[in-house]
């Protein structure tokens, strides 16, 4: 009888410990979710209606080549990269990957509330004569994989993680990087099939460009690429 009582007590203890562990894990998961929700919400609030990640100027057009100077800017407006490139062709294309921030939140009210917020990641500059896969890279990242144009001194770790997750998801969607292992609800962007509710819209590329014979970028003038929160990208004279 005493043996049975001991065994029962032992089993109850094990059940209690297991329950406590499960509750601790659940609490940890909920805490991580809350952190992610807070990061995404504050990130959405931080992103302004429009921002300028890139400015450029045509240095020369001669012999069927375009020489262009490009400067990248972070969220604080600081220049983070400067480069010059000689590209064959007449029309310059500035290619971005555009991804919904809501994709990082998966289903639920948060996902829906972020549905109108899009992040545009610079990817490559190419021309009408130079295909995109041979273009000039304008998507540098820091050591943690965060695109430099989304750097900011005031970003929290959660916000940086959210941006990284959206960026990695966009790359994976385009087959430019392996799909992240964990799913969206765990805090990472997953494969296209698990990428949040469909009505959030999917990742797509958008290359803004001049049109030969219609609208040409004038050498010597500075142009800025304006990325709007709703996903629109436009080139304007600075």
């Amino acid at each position: 009888m005493r043996k049975a009582t001991k065994l029962g007590f032992f089993l109850v203890c094990i059940a209690a410990v297991a329950t406590a562990l499960w509750l601790a894990l659940l609490r940890g998961g909920i805490l991580r979710q809350r952190e992610r929700i807070a990061a995404l919400t504050s990130l959405a609030a931080r992103l302004t209606l429009e921002r300028v990640p890139l400015r450029f100027s045509i240095l020369a057009r001669e012999g069927g080549m375009v020489r262009v100077k490009i400067k990248l800017y972070d969220l604080d407006g600081r220049m983070v990269r400067e480069a010059e490139a000689d590209l064959p062709g007449t029309e310059l294309f500035f290619d971005f990957l555009v991804s919904p921030l809501g994709a990082a939140a998966a289903e639920g009210d948060l996902g829906r509330s972020l549905a109108g917020t899009w992040l545009a990641f610079p990817r490559v500059v190419f021309t009408d004569r130079l295909p995109a896969n041979a273009g000039f890279d304008i998507g540098p990242t820091d050591t943690e994989g965060l695109p430099l144009v989304f750097g900011s001194a005031s970003l929290s770790a959660g916000e940086r993680a959210a941006i990284r997750a959206v960026y990695r998801g966009a790359l994976a969607d385009f087959g430019l990087a392996p799909a992240p292992s964990s799913d969206l609800r765990g805090g990472e962007v997953g494969s296209p099939g698990t990428r949040g509710p469909k009505d959030l819209g999917g990742v797509f590329g958008s290359a803004v460009h001049e049109v030969a014979g219609l609208a040409r970028f004038e050498p010597g003038l500075v142009y800025k690429v304006v990325c709007r929160l709703k996903g629109g990208i436009e080139i304007l004279e600075d």
Partner: peptide, 27 residues
């Protein structure tokens, strides 16, 4: 006000279907 080109793109996977829209305000 301005004229410019915009090329939208997606990976061309077999069986993939998508729709191209002209937006009222967003190209």
């Amino acid at each position: 006000r301005s004229l410019q080109g915009v090329a939208v793109h997606r990976p061309a996977r077999p069986g993939e279907r998508f729709t191209i829209w002209v937006e009222a305000t967003g190209g």
